[in-house]
């Protein structure tokens, strides 16, 4: 199907106008900077709480001693932790929370080492 020629020209001009960002520029003056939603703050707070939890845990003497006893270098673990993304960090913090209940260092150690192993192996697959 073919459009009549005058209509084709109008359509072409219309399409050309849309494909440039002229319409956006025309309205740009009216755009008001928006408030950042509350969820962004709560998200940040939740990540920093998770990070603080993990870091304070890594500083525990008994925990470091357990790591060394198993031939794992605590510094290596700390540097691996630093490269976790936000979601992984939160997962780890949740796991630590659960394992920490009852103050069982060995239980947490198993969890931490496994989480790190799984995360790092999964990334390489």
């Amino acid at each position: 199907m073919q459009l009549p020629k005058p209509l084709r020209i109008y359509v072409a001009i219309f399409m050309a106008a849309i494909m440039t960002n002229l319409p956006y520029m025309a309205f740009a003056a009216e755009v008001v900077p928006a408030m950042i939603p509350t969820s962004a703050v709560v998200e940040q707070m939740s990540v920093s709480q998770a990070r603080a939890k993990v870091e304070s845990f890594m500083k525990r003497e008994d925990f470091r001693a357990e790591l060394i006893k198993r031939g794992v270098n605590p510094e290596e673990v700390t540097s691996r932790m630093a490269s976790l993304n936000e979601q992984e960090l939160r997962q780890l913090a949740t796991q630590m929370d659960k394992a920490q209940y009852g103050g069982d260092v060995t239980g947490i150690l198993i969890v931490v080492v496994l989480v790190l192993l799984i995360i790092f192996l999964a990334r390489r697959i």
Partner: peptide, 17 residues
């Protein structure tokens, strides 16, 4: 598997605490 075993080996820790 280790996680599962760890889970089995730690009964009622919260209760004890």
């Amino acid at each position: 598997l280790t996680l599962q075993i760890a889970a089995c080996a730690s009964p009622a820790r919260q209760t004890e605490q």
